[in-house]
Design a protein around this nucleic acid. Sequence first.
DNA 1: TGTAAGTTGCACACGAGTGTGCATGTTAGT
DNA 2: ACTAACATGCACACTCGTGTGCAACTTACA
Lengths: 210, 210
Amino acid sequence: MTQTLDAAPRSRRRDAEQNRLALLAAASAVLNRDPDASLDSIAAAAGLSRRALYGHFATRDDLIRSLLAHGVSRVLAATDRVEHPDPAALLALIGVTLWREVESVRVAAQFTVRGPFQHELALALAPLRDRVRHAVTVGAGTGRIRDDIEPGMLARLVEGSVLSVLDEATRSAIDAPTGERLVALSVLGMLGFGAADARALVDATPELHR
Amino acid sequence: MTQTLDAAPRSRRRDAEQNRLALLAAASAVLNRDPDASLDSIAAAAGLSRRALYGHFATRDDLIRSLLAHGVSRVLAATDRVEHPDPAALLALIGVTLWREVESVRVAAQFTVRGPFQHELALALAPLRDRVRHAVTVGAGTGRIRDDIEPGMLARLVEGSVLSVLDEATRSAIDAPTGERLVALSVLGMLGFGAADARALVDATPELHR
DNA sequence: TGTAAGTTGCACACGAGTGTGCATGTTAGT
DNA sequence: ACTAACATGCACACTCGTGTGCAACTTACA
């Protein structure tokens, strides 16, 4: 009797969870290139057989759901820590933060447009989007951000501009510092900042410059 | 003997070409929402049976190839007519012109990233992209356009920002005038124009304002 | 109005991906 | 070393989309 009195069902093996994470990582990488890659290719990328994958995830949807949950929580956790009094700088910072979570962000972005998780995902991402929209609205009120585009629309365009850069980053390999700078400049450009003003703000904001 | 001496093979019926065009239009519309929609759904959207589709296009690839050829020629024809001495205004104009070909542009954009036509398509679109890149380079030289982003990259980011707006346009229905204005402002923002300067340029350029 | 072009509906073969069952190894933990 | 947890490989059933053949029907056109 080492554990309980009756039938000790011996706990999960450690490598199991390890493989589960490997599968999620592989899925993230593979689906980033091909949104409807087969489970076979995902399992192979994780160094496992397709049959083994079913030991960790009941169905394909289950895998994707877990992947998205994992990714969304990463993204939300990362962006939640970002704060700044200037709404423009805040938005640039959020963009830069998203850059650091490229894979998760892009997978999430894929499935906000296609697939059966759109609504569910949109719901999970709502707090972040609300925050962006709020910052845009506040900035437009103070005159810090352009007000010639309706805030809701501008918020979505900012989101789009960030995703644009992330797309570009996956095609041509971009190193972290330039990538972050590009995201910041894109966001600020969309917010109505001229090139000089944008550069000045980036240079003046250490979190953006680093 | 009405026509030739030997076997007069009676020409194509007119409704055949009509149906062919209907299929292309349906494909454009359906594939815009779902890039890998079935031939069944496309044929149905054209008011035909899947079996009839094979009377016009040998294979799925054949249909898509024709669709892309059709779309690319539309896009190139439209943008070829656009000229302007100011590179920034030219780029905004090209963007606005692309807005007027939303469906073709978006279908083309889809297949530049996924599917077996990537290289072929990129080749066909090269002249337009070269033109964008050239305008960016020239503008950066004169100081009219930001030079803190490498021209090649900036050109792709401009392309991305246009596609962003077109994406947004397909989600939320946007009327033509505001859509064109959004495209112009997005492009100019990416080029380094502040909100005020961008608005001034748009107002001063009748082809952009209309 | 006759005839060929075009459409339809059904059948079928085929490939690819999903999900499951089961027997047979491997390997981690005790 | 023993055992349960895990992985593997194979077989199988199932779904879905593609592409083809063929007979029967409708319609444009001369």
